[in-house]
Amino acid sequence: MSIPHHYIVVDDDSLNNLVCKHVILRFDKEAQIMLFADSELALKFLAEQFIHQTENGGSILFLDINMPIINGWEFLKAFEGLEEKIHKQIRIYLLSSSIDPSDIEKAHENPFVKGYYPKPLSVQTLDAIRNETMS
């Protein structure tokens, strides 16, 4: 499996998206980053973009939980409805301000969630994700 260079951030908090963008770029100068403040748009993007690709595990998606209209959990539910081909290409990590253990527990129960990390996103987190992916 190649090292992923595609990053998608889904969070209605634009400042968080700003932080994510710069932290990811510090970690991987070649990273291609998509920022979505609207979760609906993000889902639409996944459905349309990834249907033509087959780069398994090539993209990392950071998902916030607390969002209007479609929150993180609803996003995951909608993601489940997408084709398996898409599932294979995207590794989803929850990135939440919540440090509530019930949220963390719930996250671990979801098969699509590869990990749960508290905000803000840090280089260490990205490092850990890379190590995990490589091993």
Partner: peptide, 14 residues
Amino acid sequence: SHNLRAPVANIIGL
């Protein structure tokens, strides 16, 4: 978890 910590997380990140 969410409303109080979210700005804090941002501040930390920024």
